[in-house]
Amino acid sequence: MSTLIIENLVAGIPGKQILNGINLTLNSGEVHAIMGPNGAGKSTLSGVVMGKPGYVVHSGSVTLDGVDLLALPAWQRAQAGLHLILQYPTEVPGVHLDDVIREAYVSRGRDTSTLDAEIVAEAARIHFDMALVERSMNVDLSGGEKKRNETLQLALLKPKFAILDELDSGLDIDALRDCARRVEAATQEDNLGVLVITHYARLLEELRPDVVHILAAGKIVKSGGPELADELETTGYAGLTQ
């Protein structure tokens, strides 16, 4: 069992504090949802935890099984077991999915001899067209194809924890269901812990959260069970953050 602990995290961008003391503990196999209005700090939280350039940490800590993630560069955080699916996956022209996964395997000391077969099997599982594997990373892919591609990488790399930053933005219902079900399956099969960041309750119908947190103005203002997401649907954020 692994644990990701965020303690009193205060961070932002230069000149602007966005996160005002976040506390959260996520265990293997759990799904925690973070919901909140625009500007609450949801994407900042995912960027800071993964080590995306451009953010400043003022205080607090993020640890994975006791390892201080904030002291590590992004690539070492990934090797420690953290994975991020960006809201808008980056296009990397001329670089193919299998190149990336192969290098990611090699950097983890993993055997790549069956990699091609693993890619074929995983692509079939989330209905990702193998012809798209030959394309440049995220270039000329639809919103749904991009998120299937991202989910495919998550499934292959088998991290301990994944942060899904608005996995549900820019994709159709079928793709949403395929991606959400694959992540849900990973929580069962690989004991993956998931921090799912979203505006909408729909994603949570497929990817059932154990805990729902409401993030507003850089703080978690309320936490509860899945019923909190349903409550949001009727009251809106205004009702919960007042």
């Binding site: 993964m50 690539w75 990934a78 022209p93 001329g94 990336v100 290098e103 440049s136």
Partner: peptide, 26 residues
């Protein structure tokens, strides 16, 4: 682009190499 590849656990030098070779692939 560099961050995207690094966030997959790839060393920055290798990430840079992939990006440059990708640039020329076109």
């Amino acid at each position: 682009q560099r961050f995207y590849l690094e966030s997959r656990g790839i060393h920055p030098d290798i990430a840079e190499r992939l990006v440059v070779l990708g640039f020329f692939n076109e």
